[in-house]
Design a protein around this nucleic acid. Structure first.
Length: 208
DNA sequence: TATAAGATTATCT
DNA sequence: GATAATCTTATAT
């Protein structure tokens, strides 16, 4: 309490400007490593540092936009910096950032966060205690931040219920690998992760 | 209308 | 390491 009640919300984490987001989808996926995802909930603010992403690019058979726009994936075709949220395996919501120009069905999947603010809220949302398990994995981070389809299409370059922001700290070395959990176009090196982070899911993470 | 696949996770051995 | 859970979506019939 105390300080958190005094600090102005709007000045804490100014949103990333759309103009600073790289046009190229793979470049955006790399750029987002070390940035913040901020979620405002009725109980308070939840945020985390992005430590793992995947790019789904033009001509990518693994991408949801590959076969054109559908009712589910239409947000992928928005101008870069918008949320595309979908339900995977009937279980887990996935948070993506739309990329490239309007009309291009590409985006970046946010795969893992290092929890920063609102960790008590994340624990309640997830039903687990272990810090490392709160947001390690795309479905887990969506649950921790209570992200669902109601946020689909949201502009992440504006402060609101969910947005992207800069972090003051330095970003460490970034690793690159094949993507996780796909079968088509599986050989492309479009996964990016913070090498030094124990909050990365899959290969590359520490303390496994 | 039917069917198979899916950008996952939790739980088991 | 293997598998069940769970349900929406896309595609075919």
């Amino acid at each position: 309490m105390g300080r958190a009640d005094i600090v102005s919300h709007s000045d804490d984490h100014p949103p990333l400007a759309r103009e600073e987001l790289p046009d190229d989808t793979a470049a955006l996926a790399r750029y987002l490593i070390g940035k913040l995802v901020v979620r405002d909930l009725p109980e308070g603010r939840v945020s985390g540092r992005i430590v793992e992403t995947e790019a789904y690019v033009v001509g990518d058979a693994a991408g949801h936009g590959f076969r054109g726009m559908t009712p589910r994936n239409r947000s992928l075709f928005l101008e870069r910096g918008h949320a595309y949220v979908y339900l995977a395996y009937g279980i887990s919501f996935m948070l993506n950032v739309s990329s490239d120009t309007q009309g291009t069905g590409t985006g970046v999947l946010i795969r893992a966060l290092e929890p920063l603010e609102g960790i008590a809220i994340m624990r309640l949302n997830r039903g687990v205690e272990r810090l490392r398990d709160l947001a390690r994995g795309p479905g887990r981070l969506a649950a921790a931040l209570r992200i669902d389809r109601s946020l689909d299409g949201l502009d992440l370059c504006r402060e609101g219920p969910l947005w992207l922001a800069r972090d003051g700290t330095e970003t460490g070395a970034i690793g690159q690998s094949i993507r996780i959990g796909i079968s088509k176009d599986a050989e492309r090196l479009l996964r990016f992760y913070l090498k030094a982070s124990p909050f990365v899911s899959g290969p590359g993470s520490l303390n496994r």
